[in-house]
Computed example of a mutant assay.
Amino acid sequence: MKQMTVENNSLVTEFVFMGLTDQPELQLPLFFVFLLNYTATVMGNLSLMILICLNAHLHTPMYFFLFNLSFVDFFYSFVCTPKMLMGFVSEKSVISYTGCMTQLFFFDFFVNSECYVLTAMAYDRYVAICKPLMYAILMSPRMCSLLMFGSYLMGFASAMAHTGCMIRLSFCDSNIINHYMCEIFPLLQLSCSSTYANELVSSLIACIIVIVSGFVILTSYASILLNIFHMSSAKGWSKAMGTCGSHIVTVTLFYGSGLLTYVKPASAESVDQGKFFSVFYTLMVPMLNPLIYSLRNKDVKLAARRTMMRIRSTVKKCVCSSL
């Protein structure tokens, strides 16, 4: 291990990722599996963002929030997946101390921002179904922009708090992280100084997310369900459920896998289990979100067809002009 004194009094200047598995025969198959996963995540989220930008009929609050969800998913998969893929094909996956803290900051920023983006989306669905006549006023472009600004601001504040507390810790002996990325709890296990403040901050941020995000989402859907039960028309009931179905699936996948990762105490066994649960919300959920919102959405399918027709028309014009 390379050692020297750095500004935060740590002797560790680099960390080594243990990765998902230490079995050599699994490294190459896992590399190809997660390479396909990452390719699908990048292509899916990028395609959805492009479709929303290019098609005027998708310039609505619902798709504005969906654009931001894809934006967050695209970048937070980018924060951890490339390094993870390199670990499968190299003898030792190493990251510098500065690189580790940078990865921790951006991962926390995007993950926490996603919590609040999903919250804004739940509020948008509540207004659309329960207060349709007030929708244009309550979900004005200014209000949508403020909701997204607040989401990113809360994500930034959480990331700053986590990273600031982590930087004050000392790492004196082991530098092997039992994970495939720089996560909070695996890093806390390596510290040779008190982690009380870090655990307190983590608990506080988790409480804020549960109180703010959880309360708004649950309240929104409780109101939506009550509204649906009072609908006399089966068509209206079906339309309301169709509008909310994709978001409910996304929230369940994201929060469900997140809870399985973080609700347990930071013991060696729970960190090892959390490493595998985290694969779901860091790698699977960002890949699934574009599919969830595209396969059941007529507007997105229409936008895809129109965009493909434009591309074909442009290609034909280019070919004809070259001839």
Rank of each mutant, 00 (worst) to 15 (best):
P82Y: 11
Y76E: 13
A159F: 08
L138H: 07
I176N: 01
C130N: 02
C100N: 02
A128Y: 08
F107I: 12
S70L: 04
S174N: 15
F109I: 05
Y97G: 10
C172K: 09
A161I: 00
M166F: 03
S77K: 08
L85P: 09
H179D: 13
F107V: 11
Y116I: 06
N178G: 00
Y126A: 06
F71E: 08
P61Y: 08
M154R: 13
F105R: 07
L133I: 13
A159Q: 00
D73F: 11
I176Q: 11
C80K: 07
Y97E: 12
L118D: 10
T102H: 09
F106T: 01
V94F: 00
S90K: 15
K131F: 05
M84V: 06
F64G: 13
D73Q: 04
D73W: 03
Y135S: 05
C100P: 04
Y123R: 12
R142A: 09
F109K: 03
K83S: 14
L133A: 15
M101E: 06
L104C: 07
T81Y: 03
A56F: 11
Y123E: 11
M84D: 03
F75L: 15
F78H: 13
F171G: 05
A161Y: 06
I167G: 01
P82T: 10
I95R: 06
S96R: 07
C115S: 14
V117Y: 00
M166L: 04
S145L: 14
I129V: 09
L138T: 02
A128S: 12
A56H: 13
R168Y: 08
V117E: 03
I137R: 12
N178P: 00
I177W: 08
S140Q: 05
M84E: 11
V79C: 15
Y116W: 13
L69E: 03
F64C: 12
F109W: 09
C165M: 15
